[in-house]
């Protein structure tokens, strides 16, 4: 279900913890599985985690599927719902809001013709509001697909970024 590269990455995570504490690797393992699905999925449904993938990862790590499912649903960066090719998460917490975060989120929504929490009809973009990303000095900030942080997202910077994401 996962590529050999992804499994090798999970093995690397497993090696970080004492031999009898393999459960610790579940957070990294789910992240690795999600990245592979995002990179190989063709539809919003194929880009998120689902029960089958979670069960596979749990078995590979060696923990009960329900334990892995609990983790996948507790932490909000594990996409459990269909998601666009580019998930854009804009921080709108207070420090960012004072420096243009709320407006950045609205501007992206207007440009894409979607509201917060929605995905464009072509399945390309999902827009979300996020909480503090620990980068408030660089506001407005947004995350592309959980891992790529974009700083100082003025309107011009947003225009440029959206044009880049093809």
């Amino acid at each position: 279900m996962l590529s050999a590269q992804s499994l090798a990455k999970i093995d690397y995570e497993l090696a970080k913890y004492p031999a009898d504490q393999f459960r610790s690797a579940i957070m990294g393992a789910l992240r690795i599985a999600l990245v592979e699905r995002r990179e190989t999925g063709n539809t919003p449904e194929e880009r998120c985690l689902n029960a089958d993938v979670i069960e596979f990862v749990a078995n590979y790590v060696g923990i009960p599927p329900v334990a892995a499912y609990e983790v996948a649903t507790f932490y909000n960066m594990y996409d459990m719902k269909p998601v666009g090719k580019y998930k854009l998460t804009v921080c709108t917490n207070l420090p960012c809001a004072l420096q243009g975060g709320v407006n950045a989120a609205h501007y992206i929504g207007e440009k894409l013709g979607i509201g917060i929490g929605e995905t464009t009809a072509d399945g390309k973009f999902t827009l979300l509001e996020g909480e503090c990303m620990g980068a408030c000095g660089d506001a407005p900030v947004l995350l592309v697909n959980n891992h790529k942080m974009c700083s100082f997202m003025t309107r011009e910077a947003i225009d440029k970024k959206l044009a880049e994401l093809e």
């Binding site: 610790s24 957070m27 334990a67 507790f74 932490y75 909000n76 960066m77 503090c132």
Partner: peptide, 27 residues
């Protein structure tokens, strides 16, 4: 020394939630 990442839960900054999370559980 090893690195472990969170994945979107502010509460894991609280030290015992962090330990739970490091053990691969809900924070």
């Amino acid at each position: 020394l090893f690195a472990h990442h969170g994945y979107g839960a502010y509460i894991c900054g609280e030290e015992t939630a962090l330990l739970e999370s490091l053990e691969g559980k809900k924070g």
